[in-house]
Structure formats: C-alpha cells, structure tokens
C-alpha cells in the first residue's frame, strides 16, 4: 500500500484507542479473578492490588467447594451442551442435505418454514413449552433442555449448512452414485467430511448461547440435580451474597470453563463470523 498511511502519529493513536478499549473489556474480569484469591480484608482495602503472600487466601474457594455442588453443575452443563450440539449438527446436516440435494414438491416452502425460527426467538413459546414438558414428565430432566436447545439451534444450522452443501460438486456425487453408493452413504461418507468446517462453525456459534442460557434452566430444570453451571452460580451467589470471598470465587469458577473453551475455539469462532457464514 502507499506510504501516506504509515503516519506514526496515526498508528500510535490507533493503538492507543484499541488498548484503551481492550482494558475496558478485560478490567472487570481481571478484578474479579484477582480478588477471588484474597482474604476479605484485602478485598475491601485494596481491591486493585494483586494478591501477595500476606493477602492470599483460598477461603472463598473452600466455601464454594463445600457449599455448592459445582462439579455436578459443570457436568450438567457439559451434558446439555454436548448433546444439544450433537443433535443440532446431526439433524441439521440431514435436513440441510435433503433441502440442498433433492428437488421435491414443497422444497422451497419447507426451507422457508425451517428458516422462520432464525428470527423468532424460541422464548416466546415458553408458556406452552413448559406445559408440554410438564405433560410429558420431562420437567427437571436434562432432556427438556436438550430438546429446547436442539430446536433453537436447528434453523440457523440448516440455513448455513445447506448453503455450504450446495457448493459440493454434483459430479462427485454422481460419480459416487454410479459406483453404487446409496444416498445415505453419499451423505455420510462424501458430503459430511466436505462440510466439516461449516459444521465446526455451527457448533461454535451454538455452544456459547447454550452454555450461558439462564432462562430455560430456570424455568424447565431448576431442581438441584439438574442445575446447569449458569443457573447454579446464579443461585449460589444469591444465597451467599454477603460472603464476598465466596461470590468472587464462584464468579471466577464460572468464568474459567467458558474462557478455556474460548481459548480453544476462538480461531474457529472468529473465522466463522468473518467468513460471512451468518450473512
């Protein structure tokens, strides 16, 4: 590019602005985590100081581990998220393949029907969903959450995956047909491996909203043994609201898993957003 853009003052100003915003974005997280390792007195006296040998304390974490069942909550969140993603990807890819591959009566209509849910939030149907879950006895089971998140994730998954499946070459599929592969084998052995990057994008998009959701766990599965990590920390913090050590530690414990997931998948996530998959 040209030299006029490399003005050092401009560059410095740009970095200044970005660093300032990065600090604003990270500051609350940083404050919560450092204070979770301090004793009560230091939390209040010097909230911005790093923990040192004098102020270091794990008392908050002890409370969290003895009073709250965070391993169970974590396990529930894990089961719900992984199972929902599995069904979103499997059912979504199957439907996307049908819409992208075959011409049949009502194809367009079916596509539109399935796309409706991209814009309409599933929460609006909560009253009837709860009714249904009560009637089928699924209330306070993880299945209630898995079903809801699968339904919630399907519209966008089908939309994105069918876009990608239209790009798979017809010659390849026809060659496989001549070789005698069944339609199921073409889907499983040929098309699925080719759209794996798009599947990863869909998975990453769905993962965070499912993991972080508070609404449906609160309404469909508030029992102690089915609490997810998000709901569990909400309830725990509500009960221990005056115990700052415990609250800060519980917050840090809730931040940790999602931050780990982000570090693992951030490249995938950012590539997914910026590749225009959501346009």
């Amino acid at each position: 590019m040209n030299k006029a853009r490399a003005n050092p003052y401009n560059t410095a100003a740009m970095h200044g602005a970005l660093i300032l915003y990065t600090l604003i974005a990270l500051f609350p997280v940083f404050v919560i985590i450092i204070n979770s390792f301090k004793d009560r007195r230091s939390i209040f006296r010097e909230p911005l100081a790093l923990p040192n040998s004098e102020s270091f304390s794990l008392i908050g974490y002890e409370t969290v581990f003895t009073q709250g069942d965070f391993f169970l909550y974590f396990q529930n969140s894990m089961i719900v998220t992984v199972a929902s993603l599995f069904f979103v990807l499997l059912f979504g890819a199957m439907a996307a393949f049908a819409l992208a591959e075959y011409r049949f009566k009502g194809n367009l209509l079916m596509g539109l029907y399935l796309a409706l849910g991209i814009m309409i939030p599933i929460r609006i149907g909560t009253v009837a969903i709860l009714d249904m879950m009560v009637a089928t006895g699924l209330v306070n089971t993880l299945w209630a959450l898995i079903l809801v998140y699968t339904a919630q994730g399907l519209p966008l998954a089908i939309f994105i995956l069918s876009e990608f499946m239209r790009q798979v070459s017809d010659d390849l599929k026809n060659a496989a047909r001549i070789d005698g592969l069944s339609e199921y084998a073409i889907f499983l052995k040929l098309v699925l491996p080719l759209v794996r990057p798009a599947m990863a994008t869909v998975a990453v998009f769905n993962m965070i909203p499912i993991w972080n959701d508070l609404w449906f766990p609160l309404i469909l599965a508030p029992a102690e043994e089915t609490k997810t990590l998000t709901l569990g920390s909400q309830v725990f913090i509500g009960q221990f609201v005056t115990d700052w050590n415990a609250v800060l530690s519980a917050l840090s414990m809730a931040i940790l898993p999602v931050l780990t997931l982000y570090v693992i998948f951030s490249r995938q996530l950012i590539r997914g957003i910026t590749s225009g998959a959501v346009k």
């Binding site: 199957m94 439907a95 819409l99 029907y113 399935l114 339904a151 399907l154 089908i158």
Partner: peptide
C-alpha cells in the same frame, strides 16, 4: 433426512409458539 429436524423443530419450537 428431513423427519428428525422437522419433528423436533415443529414439536418444540413452532407448535409451542
């Protein structure tokens, strides 16, 4: 290919809506 997605989507999302 279509049934599972349409079934879950209809039963848990569109019908309750």
């Amino acid at each position: 290919f279509l049934t599972p997605a349409v079934l879950v989507y209809t039963a848990v999302m569109m019908f309750p809506l």
